[in-house]
Amino acid sequence: MQLPKLTGSVLSGLHCFLIAADQMSFTRAAEVLCLTQSAVSHKIKNLEDSLGVKLFIRQPRKVILTDEGKRLKAVVAQNFGDIAHEIRDLKTLELSGDFNVSAPPTFAQTWLMPRIKSFIDKYPALRLHLRTRNDLIDFQTETFDCAIYFGHGKYAGLHSEKLMDESMLPVCTHEYALRYNLYDRPDNLVMCMLLHDAAPWARAGRNDEWQYWAQRQGITLPEVGCTFDRSDLALQAAERGIGVAMGRMSFIAEQLANERLVIPFDMPVKSPLSYYVVCRQDMKSSPRVKAFQDWLADEIANVE
């Protein structure tokens, strides 16, 4: 028996034949393939016409494989199985090796690191290399697969996928709030030491985060205070009673839960920026980047 050219129609027919031969029923094969019984019968009839041999003996309540059908089933099952295993192996190769990711320092420390074990456990063949920095990546000269940015989502020549929004509000210790009478008195911030993240996002000024919050609340604040190059350092300073830090809600859940920090007045402001996964355009369909994005989306959904 000589096979014809393996066109799309023949390959589709061979797959349909294999399912029908396994089920020994066109009706059950139709259920597996989400087709009608007549569509399955039509596909197999076309395949028989293409091959020039009869594959099934049709009886009123069942079908029986002919000798030619039995021979073809053995060959197709083995080769389709080999193809399936090869595809699985190719996908496994795509999800192995070095995986280079950049993320903002505080996001990496307070949000990503407590969760990253589940990603490593899920993709043990990927060797994660996480690097932290506040500035943007030069994807043309640096070997990063993707980066997490806190920004506006528009980066020339790059692909970006939004992860989540952010909101922010002032936090301090309970003792500091009492000392400066801050509970429900945001106007008393003028007497406080303001703790600034000097690099809350790329190209930001050292007072930008506090001033953005104050403007949205109609409050005038001085631009003086202590500055740090990471948000988590400003939060640590607040925990030590040095002053009031601008807390991002994604970062302060643990401190609020164990009361190391408090919210003296519930006046959150939605940040003008959000978190994005960013990569080169030619990497947006990369299995490893998509796996990382899907994992991040699942983690965010679990928080929500």
Rank of each mutant, 00 (worst) to 15 (best):
V262N: 04
E254P: 09
Q140L: 13
G241T: 02
D138L: 06
L128E: 00
N302V: 06
K162L: 09
G153Q: 07
Q236C: 12
V75P: 00
C34G: 15
E166C: 15
E142T: 04
S50W: 02
A156P: 09
D135Y: 13
S12R: 11
R58Q: 14
L235V: 05
A214R: 04
L128T: 04
H85S: 11
E94M: 03
K290C: 13
L296S: 03
C172Y: 07
F251D: 01
L136G: 09
Q293V: 15
F265Q: 05
D22G: 07
L182Q: 04
Q78K: 15
K117Y: 10
Y212I: 07
H196D: 00
T7E: 11
T143N: 13
Q255P: 08
V303C: 11
K43L: 14
H15G: 13
C16I: 13
V40Y: 03
I242D: 11
H159P: 04
K290M: 15
D232R: 12
V269E: 00
D89Q: 14
F26R: 11
S38P: 00
N79L: 12
R58S: 12
C279F: 07
Y180Q: 01
Q211K: 07
G151R: 01
F17A: 05
K54W: 04
P114F: 01
P104Y: 02
R133W: 04
T66M: 12
R88A: 15
T143V: 10
N46D: 13
T110F: 15
S160F: 01
T106D: 04
A21D: 05
V101L: 15
P104H: 01
F292I: 05
S50C: 01
E94W: 08
K270S: 14
A125H: 07
S41K: 14
D145V: 00
S250G: 09
K70S: 15
Y176M: 03
H152S: 15
S50M: 02
P4H: 05
M1I: 07
V277Y: 08
Y212S: 06
K43G: 08
Y275N: 12
G97T: 03
R179E: 14
Q37R: 15
Y275S: 13
L33V: 07
T66G: 11
P222R: 13
Y275H: 11
E31S: 13
